[in-house]
Amino acid sequence: MAVLSPESIDNLKATKVIGIIGLGDMGLLYANRFTQAGWTVCGCDREEIYPSLLKQNFPFEVLPNGHYVSRKSDYIIYSVEAENIDTIVKIYGPSTKVGAIVGGQTSCKFPEISAFEKHLPKDISIISVHSLHGPKVDTTGQPLVLIPHRCSNENFDFVESLMSCLKSKHVKLSYQEHDRITADTQAVTHAAFLSMGVAWHQHQQYPWETPKWIGGLENAKINISLRIYSNKFHVYAGLAITNPSAHEQILQYADSCNDLFTLMIQNKKKEFKERVLHAKEKVFGHLKQDHKLLLDDDVLQQYSLIGLV
């Protein structure tokens, strides 16, 4: 994938307008970074909070609603929750500027692409994106998925050049590949860490208050759990609930948790141990001779709970 020359990008900056529908945490991150890079940016959020947004003196133009953004923008990014994407595209999609490009920032692409195909005019190109990190993370070197669903090479080069200001690591995928990989790598993982937090809350025993959880690996798990809980719920709803590829994994996770709990209350220690070790062999068996994919114990010991509370 080749980014356009500096001269070509300067020409685009002089003629193209970037629109952001949804000025939440990630929408603001994109709007501010694009503006800092010299692009002309406009954005909007819910119409009832338009007056309060105007008072915040953002470095880009704030408009009353998505109709205004869609009419004047050459690339429109819907930065909204996956569960609301269809409703919002249905409202603002018909106002999209002729010949524009539309994309989304949701963590699940199936409902997003479906909404675009259903509600956008047929002459509109579709190029979606997904930064695989939260809004408080430096975008430099982070993975950024680009999804050229319906577009010309010229339009894709434009979007990729725009995204280059984030200094992220670009990955080109179809929306089906994106959702499958997201489900395989994040859905069940996040469900497990969320379950840990629920268990701590139910027992009123928190890892920073008891010596029960000690060591680098435990500290790493606790840090990840707390990081997930510090983000907004809709991100994980998008990963697990609206992603069809995640359903099988989530259901199997629930079944496995139920089976293991049943073995515990039945005091079947042998069967419990055999099942856990079988899972270990299934996942990590191929690493018996080569541990390069596993974190070194010395690295794990660097994780601590200092400063978390």
Rank of each mutant, 00 (worst) to 15 (best):
E83P: 03
Q105Y: 06
T40R: 09
I49D: 00
G104S: 11
T35M: 09
V102S: 05
S52H: 11
D74E: 11
P59Q: 10
I91T: 15
S73A: 15
F34V: 08
Y92M: 06
A82Y: 05
N65M: 04
I49L: 03
R71M: 08
G66L: 01
Y68F: 11
L53E: 09
T106P: 02
L53I: 10
P59K: 13
Y30M: 09
T96G: 07
G103A: 11
M26A: 12
N84A: 08
S70E: 07
V62N: 12
V89I: 15
G104E: 07
Y50N: 02
C44N: 10
W39V: 02
E81L: 12
T40Y: 03
Y78F: 15
G104M: 00
I101R: 00
Y30W: 07
I77L: 15
Y68K: 09
G99M: 06
G104F: 01
G66Y: 04
Y50T: 06
A100L: 06
S52A: 11
S70T: 14
G27F: 00
I85K: 07
G27N: 01
Y30F: 15
Q56A: 14
W39G: 06
Y78S: 02
M26Q: 15
I49W: 00
I77E: 03
V62K: 11
Q36E: 14
V80S: 00
S52D: 13
F58M: 05
D86F: 04
P51D: 10
R33D: 08
M26T: 14
T40C: 02
P59S: 12
P64R: 14
G93M: 00
R71V: 08
G38A: 00
K55W: 00
C44Y: 04
C42M: 06
V89R: 06
T35F: 08
G66H: 01
Y30I: 08
P51S: 13
T35C: 12
I88Y: 08
V69L: 02
I101V: 15
G43W: 00
R71C: 08
V69Y: 00
G43K: 06
K55E: 14
N57Q: 14
I101E: 03
I49E: 01
S79C: 15
I88H: 04
T106V: 11
H67G: 05
Y50R: 01
S52Y: 01
V62I: 14
P51Q: 13
K55S: 10
T106I: 05
A31I: 10
S79G: 09
W39S: 08
K72A: 01
S70D: 09
G103W: 05
Y78H: 02
Y68G: 00
E83C: 09
I76L: 09
L54P: 05
I76T: 15
G99H: 05
G27Q: 01
K90V: 04
L28Q: 15
Q105I: 13
S73H: 11
L53S: 11
N84Q: 11
I88W: 04
G104K: 03
F34H: 03
D45I: 02
V80H: 01
Q36G: 09
T87K: 15
N32T: 13
D74S: 12
G27H: 01
Y30L: 15
Y68V: 03
D45Y: 06
Q105W: 07
T40D: 06
G38F: 05
N65I: 04
Q56F: 06
A100I: 09
I88V: 13
L29T: 13
S52K: 13
G103N: 08
R33F: 06
N57C: 12
R71H: 13
G66W: 00
Y75C: 12
V69H: 03
K97Y: 11
